[in-house]
Design a protein around this nucleic acid. Structure first.
Length: 232
DNA sequence: GCGACAG
DNA sequence: ATCTTGTCGC
């Protein structure tokens, strides 16, 4: 095997970019999902002025209740010293190691994973969702709150309306700008690994509750930012 | 050289 | 991402 050892997470920007180019070629954009019974949400937060990284994973049962509520099957939180600063385009090297550690705590292996960040909607087509998907060998979807690269028009006003996110000279479609809630800034959805954009949109839409973010990501976000203790 | 830039 | 109060609106 030509597996990259874990210590190679600490690479100089130059090498990290070269690695992304190689890994991008291994990302699968065609659907390869099994039956979906468990959907996970992943997000990373920080504490102590960014010195400590908090990786949170929340596993939900599919399907949920009619009202858009899902049963939480399991939660995992991993804390570790932050390994590197935020560098646009190299986010996965900062967040994926901690996310993998959190996944190791799980007793159930999710069938689909939603990650806070971009999938292939990345300069080298290897956003954090794609990178994590490759390491876990699981279908992943990138759900970002803002744009990293690409061009797009304004999506329609209704929940579910979306417009394609394109990039490059060939106008390659790399994701979708989705109106997840009326009257709110849209979210950026892109395939991470092992699924198409159409399928990614299907699942993100299916997991929308009353808020802007789909439930998996929203709950992971809350746990990573330790907001679960507050407001109660 | 001048912007743009997930979390 | 995180630091932070009140405030506008359903």
């Amino acid at each position: 095997m030509t597996a990259v050892p874990l210590h190679d997470w600490d690479l100089a920007p130059r090498e990290a970019i070269a690695l992304q180019r190689r890994l991008a070629g291994r990302v699968e954009r065609a659907d390869r999902l099994g039956p979906v019974r468990h959907i996970a949400g992943v997000d990373i937060g920080f504490e102590a002025q960014g010195e400590i990284t908090r990786a949170a994973v929340v596993v939900l049962a599919w399907p949920g209740a009619p009202g858009g509520e899902f049963a939480v099957v399991e939660e995992a939180l991993h804390r570790e010293p932050t390994r590197m600063p935020y560098v646009p385009g190299l986010l996965s090297f900062r967040e994926v190691p901690a996310a993998l550690a959190a996944f190791e705590q799980l007793t159930v292996r999710p069938d689909l994973v939603m990650v806070d960040g971009q999938g292939i909607a990345h300069p080298r087509r290897l956003g954090v969702a794609s990178h994590l998907g490759l390491w876990l060998d699981l279908p992943t979807i990138g759900v970002a709150k803002s744009r990293l690269c690409g061009r797009h028009g304004e999506p329609g006003p209704e929940r579910g309306d979306w417009s394609p996110l394109t990039d490059g000279p060939e106008d390659e479609v790399i994701g979708a700008v989705l109106r997840s809630r009326a009257g709110v800034k849209p979210i950026f959805v892109s395939p991470g690994h092992r699924l198409s954009l159409t399928t990614a949109l299907h699942w993100v839409t299916a997991c929308l509750g009353r808020t802007k973010l789909p439930e998996p990501t929203r709950l992971a976000d809350r746990l990573a930012s330790r907001r679960g203790e507050k407001s109660r």
